[in-house]
Amino acid sequence: MDLIRLDRLAVPGRLQPLRLALAPGEMLGVIGPNGAGKSTLLNALAGVQPYSGTLDYFGFDARRLGPKQRAQRIGFLPQSHHSAWSLCVEDVVALGRLPWGDEDAALIESAMARTGVLPWRRRKVAQLSGGEQARVWLARVLAGQPVLLLADEPVASLDLLHQRKVMELLREHARQDRAVVLSIHDLGLAARYCDKLCLLAEGQLLAFGTPREVLTEAHVAAAFQVEVHVDLDAQPPIILPK
């Protein structure tokens, strides 16, 4: 059974009706130029953006899930993060347990260990570098043990090392009965780490399928309005403007 299935899911003025499905164990990359509707799609999946059409979660209409049940199953990592208060790393990660109404120390510690932020548990998040903070925000979502993890541009503005670390953590999460949907601008990383890609342009779905099916020169040129060189057999895959 599909983990999520979208049928004619649309957001008026921002996202045309689209249809796609994601199986457990898969990682879906949402790609496309700025303003294509990537964040809108992720927000709709996260339940923070009203939508029309249907979104089935394990064959069950997601609208019929209560906000708490939904939050227990679907974790959302928004594009921009900022803590209003001078919280320490441990307390930020503990926020991931809010849908469960507990502060399970073992799960919080495990999420911090997996993301490598455990040594800074008592430090203020604001004192960490951008790359270190990105891992803390991710640890917050992982602490909630979501079946579906949504991440909006999780590697934007990160250096190469942190880009790889975050992508590997997401890849590791998308195993067995769990899945990940992320929006990403780096097409090379998308081709390397994602099982499926969803190419959006001006709110429309241009292509959906495996990286090899989606990342053709024709599709990318149509979406980004630029000629590209694509070599998916290279390690890592190369997608560069000509």
Binding site: V48, P67, G75, F76, P78, H82, L95, L98, P99, R140
Partner: peptide, 11 residues
Amino acid sequence: SLGEQVAQSLG
């Protein structure tokens, strides 16, 4: 603490 969007996504 992490904004309205995060609060909403946390149910």
